[in-house]
Design a protein around this nucleic acid. Structure first.
Ligand code: SF4
Ligand code: SF4
Lengths: 135, 135
DNA sequence: ACAAAAAAAGACAAAAGTATCTAAAAGTCC
DNA sequence: GGACTTTTAGATACTTTTGTCTTTTTTTGT
């Protein structure tokens, strides 16, 4: 088990940060992103396809093809990426794994998880790839 | 992938909360805990064995045997359970999955993860099973 | 002593997640 | 048009986690 994000999400975040940091370069081939972000290229390629479907990336085939951002990077927030790759797991699901329990008649742990999850959601929602690239 | 804890940890937390809530009962058989916490009994048994090794639970075999707390439940904190079952993953490892990188020359995400992880560690460190049982 | 009950230990099975490989489709450049 | 490059799609393999099953060991109660 990874720490908080799935491996796919970890690789994607690392890769997208690399891409966002390179102001001069627009289009990236998967092998280049993979090398720069220390990710396995074939696996990263799969997750980039998901990000294309999710509207984060554009892709183009052929000689000068590759992946590029589908919109300005100050309009791409970390939560967008996490939502596409890891779903609502981190932002909605019960931390104790109960399938059909939310808010009504909460168990003792509920209030804690709420207090922890909300700042996480806030941070992911407020931070854009553009801001990540600056630091 | 579970939300933040492994399944083993989810089941353990749920089970221990059930046990802590029952002030009248000291010794619990695994099948009873499993039923009360909606966990698979054989799997829960395995994780309880880990908690015995970790010093959280005592176990006794035979007719009136079962599991009981190894120390007062106001001295058992959630972080103790998480540390035994999930290791340092949540409290120390890099959220982006980089193996050998901590604090020195941090990447753009580092500061965010620190700001999120610390409240999590604090909450888990401050909350005891006794407090969990009250609510 | 004996039978029953419980945890302990280990083997095993199933599922999910991660990673690689191959062939196909589409675009670029000459 | 043809060679080449890149994504896309699908198949496949590996690994880890999760879950089950069986046997053994220990204790209790009769
Ligand atoms: S009340 Fe407890 S079991 Fe229900 S969603 Fe909240 S943490 Fe999960
Ligand atoms: S600096 Fe970035 S890569 Fe390094 S431990 Fe922190 S979050 Fe992980």
């Amino acid at each position: 088990m990874a720490v908080v994000f799935s491996r796919a999400c970890e690789y994607a975040l690392r890769g997208l940060i690399v891409m966002a940091k390179a102001k001069d370069r627009e289009v990236w081939r998967v092998p280049d992103v993979a090398e720069e972000s220390n990710s396995p290229a074939p696996f990263l390629a799969k997750t980039f396809q998901q990000l294309v479907k999710g509207g984060i990336l554009n892709s183009s085939k052929g000689r000068r093809g590759g992946f590029s951002f589908a919109r300005p990077i100050d309009e791409i927030f970390l939560i967008d990426i996490v939502n596409i790759l890891d779903g609502q797991r981190l932002t909605y699901d019960c931390a104790l794994g109960m399938p059909d329990c939310h808010d009504e008649n909460p168990c003792p742990f509920h209030v804690h998880w709420r207090r922890i999850r909300q700042p996480l959601i806030d941070a992911l929602s407020e931070e854009s790839l553009a801001q990540m690239a600056k630091k």
